[in-house]
Amino acid sequence: MIKAIIRYLLQLIYFVYILGAAPSALADQEYNVIVHPDVVEKNLSVNTLRAIFGMRMQTWPDGTKIRVFVLPDEAPLHQKFSKGMLRVFPYQLRAAWDRLVFSGIGHAPISVASPEEMQEKVSSTPGAIGYLWKNNIHRGVDVLQVQR
């Protein structure tokens, strides 16, 4: 009896644990994080994504340089990505980049003017990461799964 209860409880804990840890792909969004096809990582946590777009994490685990591409601060997709995915206000991201650039301890991301340029740059730059509206994504880039 006691054994059964313990087994049940263990299973329950296991089940809850699996539920909690299961990667919940963001189904409802209209945009994706994209990377250059040579980037080995196809799966990242939001936390890692924050470190990347905060320009604090500079290399992929295999040692290659991470090259971050962003749309202008006022672009609707940038606002959406920044607030919805990274949970940071665009002005905070800009402030963080300025602190890195003007004290010399980091880099600014590379600005692109349009979704077309985003597609072109990410597909042609090794180690590149960026984001695009789903219907702007073409061959030449890989879509990255983000786990929360």
Binding site: Q58, T59, T64, K65, V101, F102, I105, H107
Partner: peptide
């Protein structure tokens, strides 16, 4: 007035001057 240069010659190395 300020001017700076940030270089990343190696993945782990950055050189900066202002």
């Amino acid at each position: 007035i300020g001017l700076n240069a940030l270089m990343r010659p190696l993945p782990r190395l950055q050189l900066s001057a202002q």
